[in-house]
């Protein structure tokens, strides 16, 4: 049934191509904030704590994180549309393994997120952002992006399947949003004066994704952040897929 799996993933991608508003909005917002942050407070990049790369490579990882947040609701919306139309039952009665019905839209969303991450990387390179380890850095950033995106897609799809309302897929975005501000998003740890914010940032998984990306871009963070970031996002992405699949068992056919 490898063919059926590929057909389902292809369908998920085509759904996004036909209705690209969510990923395009996510991309546009990420790019907008990247440019605004850099234009507004980019001058602080001259401080020593930002390394030699300046502010753009420092703030760039936030664009990748917010990109996945912007497009993660797509999987839930595809599933919801299929359930509302009754088509999910038709797909359920095909010889394809039933887990692929849930996983395929998540994978499609994740691939879409990866595509737009590559676009962001290309734009960043055009603006002079350098990659510490060349193509290895690019692959590392894409891997972190893939796992982070899968995490958000899985939880979004799972929540939608449990509630049966596509609006609820946005719960994940809303829940993750504050984490962006409880981290080293805008300033390196050395310049954060609040003790409680520093303490919270250590417990915030977003910190490890941000700093892991910074290790790969300008090399301003230690390698451990990248490895921890990989480990954390690998665990959360597995947990989110399991959550989505368990949620699918609750669907009333």
């Amino acid at each position: 049934m490898k063919t059926a799996n590929a057909i389902f993933i292809n369908r998920g991608i085509m759904k996004l191509v036909k209705q690209p508003s969510a990923p395009i909005m996510g991309f546009a917002m990420s790019l907008f904030f990247l440019l605004v942050y850099n234009a507004g407070i980019g001058g602080v990049g001259n401080l020593e704590a930002f390394g030699t790369g300046g502010y753009l490579p420092f703030v760039f990882p936030i664009a990748i994180i917010s990109l996945a947040m912007g497009s993660s609701a797509g999987a839930g919306q595809t599933l919801n549309a299929d359930m509302q139309s009754g088509y999910f039952r038709r797909l359920y009665l095909s010889p394809a393994p039933r887990w692929i019905l849930v996983v395929a839209p998540m994978l499609a969303d994740t691939l879409s997120s990866l595509f737009f991450t590559m676009l962001l990387l290309a734009i960043a390179a055009l603006f002079g952002v350098t990659f510490q380890f060349g193509m290895l850095s690019v692959f590392g950033i894409l891997l972190l992006s893939l796992l982070w995106s899968l995490t958000l897609c899985g939880f979004s799809a799972g929540i939608m399947l449990r509630t049966g309302q596509h609006q609820s897929a946005a719960i994940v975005t809303n829940a993750v949003f504050p984490l962006l501000f409880l981290s080293t998003t805008f300033l390196p740890r050395e310049l954060i004066t609040s003790e409680w914010l520093l303490a919270v940032s250590w417990a915030n998984p977003v910190t490890y994704i941000l700093e892991g990306n910074r290790y790969l871009l300008a090399g301003t963070s230690p390698a451990e952040f990248f490895y921890f970031g990989l480990l954390i996002t690998a665990v959360t992405s597995i947990a989110s897929v399991v959550f989505a699949l368990r949620s699918a068992k609750r669907i009333k056919i």
Binding site: M1, A81, D82, S85, G86, Y87, R89, R90, L93, S94, P95, A96, P97, R98
Partner: peptide, 18 residues
């Protein structure tokens, strides 16, 4: 369940179309 789907065709009460 996957194998049996090759043998059966189902048209239920509600339309199941995208």
């Amino acid at each position: 369940p996957a194998k049996i789907q090759h043998f059966i065709g189902v048209a239920s009460q509600e339309n199941e179309i995208d």
